[in-house]
Design a protein around this nucleic acid. Structure first.
Lengths: 236, 236
DNA sequence: TTTTTTTGTCATGAAACTGTAACAAATTCC
DNA sequence: GGAATTTGTTACAGTTTCATGACAAAAAAA
């Protein structure tokens, strides 16, 4: 059971601790940074599921960090919430326009921040919120770890299930082996990248044999990774 | 060209008109409702891309409408923004917990609402934000590394894809072999300039064979390099 | 315990990609 | 026209990347 990783960056230790306390209580895995540069480094090193950035920080502002993250494809899709004492019109819209998903003005209640975090995660990590996810003829039930293809039940091991879930959260998007390792195994785990290939093979096999279907729903993107594809876009 | 449909429900005509005005200006297709029941009916009838609900409305509150929409699978994934004059803690979190994607307290500026709408659409409609580059009949999707010519899918290797992406970034502009080498291979790499010729050949071939089209979309500029051209400038 | 399932790695062959050389074709210049 | 230059095209070898089956260790189930 992998916890959801949230990165918080704020230069006020009290504020940081307050948020950390509340998020930890909700069973999130909290990583903290005390300035913009640290936030940026950590973001690229671990792949958090969500990032909370204070606007005003030493070395690099939250806005700049957000811009940087949005400019790179590996971090483009990570949800970002910006915190700020600046409640002015222009500031709020600026925050959202540069790619943040939400903008919360200080002071805010932990409850509200939490509610907004959950609202965003509901969208970006559908497996956490919905009973099931559906893509083409494939349906998976995160809570019970059941996979069905065309109504037929498919048998997958835990790791296989997690990988497929990850791919299903963003169909068409290419996941690199590193991304898959980070999300499924956890960051910093020592596992060969090629192991992913083998699991992909196992998933493909399970989907084919059990459902007697020869269509390949997982696309290999040479040099990049794997992605779920609709049959109409399928390569092979 | 499909416009994005947004449904607004508010019982104050002035407010409604103000929002409608601003959204129409942004080229959204705006549908309005003046009470909760109407909002619910319209939602199920026309499947908007986003719904904005005032909390306090006759017949059925925005909260109840939101609950109803979330309980049905057809409307479960439509993003919802709740507007409210009630800025209290509990209200805000209730709105979000019930399944809304954002909660905006009145009074708000049209600019901010717009920014929040866009932030949400960015997530829920990746196809709109996750854009593609288009030139003539050629379309390339950077995030998924997919190339289409005339709607048909083209298979390109990584280097070929990068070169074509580069050319697409600035149609008509001539790229020298040195420029292409620097951008695609990286600066200071030791590769023959003539190699570019071969890749151009491969790209041309892929575009021709796979789409059964003989038009040459890549122009050779003798002594300078290559460039994408519109058909009217094409030679041969 | 034994049995089964899951997990991670390896070896091997297949497939795709890369870069270059060699020659053909075309363009330019004289 | 003829020589020089530039580009087009093809083939080929080297390299990288991926698919696949096999296998042993670890974990879970019986």
């Amino acid at each position: 059971m992998n916890k959801i990783k949230i990165l918080i960056a704020d230069d006020e230790p009290n504020q940081l601790e307050l948020i950390r306390f509340n998020l930890t209580k909700e069973n999130f895995d909290v990583i903290s940074a005390s300035d913009g540069e640290e936030a940026l480094c950590l973001s690229e090193e671990i792949f958090p599921d969500l990032i909370i950035l204070d606007w005003m920080m030493p070395k690099m502002s939250g806005i700049d960090v957000c811009r940087k993250l949005r400019s790179k494809s590996v971090s483009r899709d990570i949800p970002i919430i910006i915190l700020s004492a600046r409640g002015e019109e222009g500031d709020r819209t600026l925050g959202l326009e540069i790619g943040a998903d939400d903008y919360v003005t200080k002071p805010f209640s932990p409850m509200e921040l939490l509610a907004r975090i959950k609202a965003i995660l509901r969208r970006s990590r559908p497996s956490l919120a919905n009973d099931y996810m559906e893509f083409e003829k494939l349906r998976i039930y995160p809570s019970t770890q059941i996979v069905k293809y065309n109504g037929e039940k498919i048998n997958l091991g835990p790791k296989e299930f997690k990988i497929l879930s990850l791919l299903m959260e963003r169909p068409e998007q290419i996941f690199s082996r590193t991304q898959i390792l980070d999300k499924v195994w956890g960051h910093g785990i020592d596992v060969e990248q090629r192991t992913i290939d083998v699991y992909i093979r196992r998933i493909r096999k399970a989907l084919m044999i059990d459902s007697n279907e020869s269509k390949n729903i997982i696309r290999t993107v040479r040099g990049s990774g794997y992605a779920l594809v609709t049959s109409k876009f399928g390569f092979h």
